[in-house]
Every structure is written in structure tokens, then in C-alpha cells.
Simulated scan of single mutants.
Amino acid sequence: MDEAVVEAAARTPVDDDLPFDVFAKRCPSRGTLEHVTGRWGGLTLGALYEGSLRFNELRRRVDGVSEKMLSQTLHALERDGLVHREAQPTNPPRVDYELTPLGRDVAERLLGLIHLVEGRMPEVLAARERYDAAHD
């Protein structure tokens, strides 16, 4: 894709006919791909595919994520239109997170990849053993 087209895409509102190219340095799709495929983004989307969760429920489900990283991840995913944040005016305040229709579509595809990797882990572990044995 021509670099001028990519630069224009970064400055102009979304147009359904605009070609995006994640391999182009300035394409805005690259940031979204990073949010979706990063460790915490992918796990967060996968966890929310199961249903709406409160922040601490989500933090427990995504074992190992810090409060700060989860908060940053949720903000990025919300900004990209993948996650919806609903604050309830209760005391104490209640905030629920759920996937948008776009988020569900993305999470569905991610879960396919997750299940593939989980199902093929015996092969991965065997490959690691062979590699480590050959490189020690």
C-alpha cells in the first residue's frame, strides 16, 4: 500500500472503502492488532467471551495480570470498540465489562487459536525438548 494512503488513513475518519494494511508502519489497524493479540488483550477478550464480568472477577480469571495492566488493557479495548464498560450508579459503584458485537467476533477467532494451541501443546513441548537437547 502507498505510504501516503496509509498516512491519510491515520488522519481521516473511518471509511468502509478504505484499504487498511497492518503491515504498513502507520496503518491504524496495527495498534488494534497489538491490543487484541498482546498477552493481556487476548486473555481479556477470551475471558469476557464467557460473559459480563466485574473488574475483580476479570482480574481473577486472567491469572497473573496486575490491576494496572488490566485497567490499561480494558481502556484500549474499549477505545477500539471491542469492550463495553457499564458503570452502575450504586454504592459502592459497580462496573461491568462485556464484549461488543465486534469484540465477540474477534474473541471467537482468538478462542479458535487458543484452543488450537492448547490442543497441540504435547507437540510444542516435545519440540522444545528436542530444541533444548540440541542446543545445550
Rank of each mutant, 00 (worst) to 15 (best):
P19C: 06
L74Y: 01
W40C: 09
T90P: 02
A8P: 00
E34T: 08
V124P: 04
S71I: 01
L111E: 09
M69Q: 15
D15E: 14
D2E: 11
N56C: 00
Y97P: 02
D17C: 07
D15K: 13
K68A: 14
L18I: 06
L116H: 15
T12E: 14
A4C: 02
A10V: 00
G51V: 00
L74F: 01
P92Q: 01
R130Y: 05
S71V: 00
A126M: 01
L113G: 05
D96K: 10
S71F: 12
R39F: 13
L18P: 00
G46L: 07
E108I: 01
E118Y: 13
L70W: 03
S71M: 07
F55E: 09
T100I: 03
L70V: 10
R85M: 10
D63R: 15
R60M: 13
G51A: 03
R79K: 14
L18W: 14
V5I: 13
R54L: 11
G41H: 02
G31A: 12
R94N: 10
A9N: 15
L125G: 01
Q72P: 00
E7S: 05
N56F: 12
F20Q: 05
N56W: 11
V14G: 01
E7C: 05
L125F: 15
D132Y: 15
E3M: 10
D15W: 06
D132Q: 14
K68M: 11
T32G: 05
P93Q: 07
E86W: 03
D15N: 14
S29D: 12
T100M: 03
D2V: 03
P92S: 02
A126E: 11
L70F: 05
L18V: 13
H75W: 05
P122G: 07
E118H: 11
A24R: 15
V62C: 11
L77G: 10
R94V: 15
S66Y: 05
T100N: 05
R26G: 13
T37G: 07
L74T: 04
L82K: 02
H35W: 06
G64Y: 01
D132C: 06
A133W: 04
L99S: 05
V62T: 07
G64H: 04
H84G: 00
L74E: 00
E7I: 06
A8Q: 10
C27M: 05
F20N: 04
M121A: 08
S66F: 02
L102V: 06
T12V: 08
A9K: 10
L43R: 15
M69W: 12
D63V: 08
Y49E: 08
L33H: 12
R109S: 03
A134I: 09
A107S: 04
M69I: 10
P28F: 04
G51N: 04
L77V: 06
F20I: 06
V83T: 07
V65W: 03
T100L: 07
N91Y: 13
E118M: 14
A8T: 03
I114L: 09
A8S: 08
L48Q: 02
T44Q: 07
A133S: 12
G112S: 08
A76S: 09
D80M: 00
R61D: 09
E34D: 07
H115K: 14
V83S: 05
E108K: 13
V6C: 15
H135Q: 07
